[in-house]
Design a binder for these strands. Structure first.
Lengths: 213, 213
DNA sequence: GTCTATACCCGGATAGAC
DNA sequence: GTCTATCCGGGTATAGAC
């Protein structure tokens, strides 16, 4: 777990708190990380954090909010693509896995741990539901137009989520490069499993890479 | 999160500790669950736990050890099947998802949270590596015999892991029945995505269900 | 094996000087 | 905005009676 490789010179303290908190949460969980750990990673004293965030909870909430807003926007954008559900889904997965690879934040704790189950993260849960509904919409339309196999929508959505979450898991290991967090591999795996005619995959890929990716 | 539905009458205290601890870990994480919470769920006082386990860590370790031993055994058994890698993988997934559905323990925190990253769980990490090596072996042989698509072994293994982990995630929600934790759906999704000729899936399924499932 | 009592540390958060 | 000092609750674990 190297997790640096980003130039943090000149970042405002508030951003540094978000950055280091996300990485500490990833390693020890939200509840396992203390505000003292975060402050010490940033290089300030523990009470100074409270000039930037009213509570530890607020730090995680902002990380969640930023990430889910970006995901929801990307999904809405992809869902408008006239090339149909398979290309829409492929494009979204490319965007998501690329974004996970490139963000300086480590988002693992937000979705893999207990965080979203804690009662105080009601707002994050609402955003997450909105996100999942958009994803389910693309999948449903693919099943209805018979571009995808006739499978249970909820099941297919879970399977897609599973691959996205695994990409998030891998992003923590910055040792191994380009495994599941290789955007085209992840997107191809999912779309191939869903396409009614899997041999159409190369055409879907080509369409997804054409135009404003 | 209802999580009961099992008759715990007559269970020894030690087993009750494991049961309730697993469920509390699932909801608040290992580090977020206190020994007081566990004791109170079992119906004893907090120090009484130390007659059964030398530490909180030892409780999680036993849960890990039991689950990984069972998984490793099942993988070894499936890997000997003469019907080939696709059937071996399909059978193993059936076993795994069924086992996740039926166990009274809630195993989510063991694999989804920070637990395996904590330094004190070195033994669990070793077992987990052994488990993953066996799974990778089946996948590798499928790629070598060209029953599976020519893909990166590590990538395919991650994808299979992703689906198993999602089944574990779903098992917590005992509200929604039979979604990703429907054994045949999970197994079919994975094997279909890996088969070089996806139309062979029905034959693989039939073979997997024949004989000592 | 279970209890009460307790040691001792570390958690989040606040007050108030600079 | 950052600091020192501090409050107070809750954490794991142990001692020792029953």
């Amino acid at each position: 777990m190297v997790s640096q490789a980003f130039d943090t010179a000149g970042w405002p303290t508030r951003e540094l708190i978000l950055l280091h908190a996300s990485r500490l949460f990833a390693g020890r969980g939200f509840l396992g990380t203390s505000t003292r750990d975060i402050a010490s990673a940033v290089g300030i004293r523990q009470p100074s954090m409270y000039s930037h965030f009213p509570s530890k909870h607020a730090i995680a909430e902002e990380l969640l909010r930023r990430d889910l807003h970006a995901g929801i926007e990307a999904l809405q954008r992809c869902a408008q693509d006239p090339a149909g559900p398979a290309v829409q889904l492929y494009r979204y997965l490319l965007w998501e896995v690329t974004s996970v690879r490139e963000t300086p934040f480590d988002l693992r704790a937000l979705y893999l741990g207990e965080l979203l189950d804690l009662p105080e993260f009601e707002h994050g849960r609402r955003l997450n539901n909105e996100y999942e509904a958009l994803l389910a919409g693309i999948i449903r339309s693919g099943i209805e137009t018979q571009e995808f196999v006739a499978t249970d929508v909820a099941f297919a959505q879970r399977a897609v989520d599973a691959i996205i979450l695994e990409a998030i898991r891998c992003s923590g290991d910055r040792r191994q490069h380009r495994i599941l967090d290789e955007p085209d591999m992840a997107a191809a795996f999912v779309v191939r499993a869903l396409l009614r005619v899997p041999s159409r995959l190369p055409r879907v890929q080509a369409a997804a890479h054409r135009a404003g990716s």
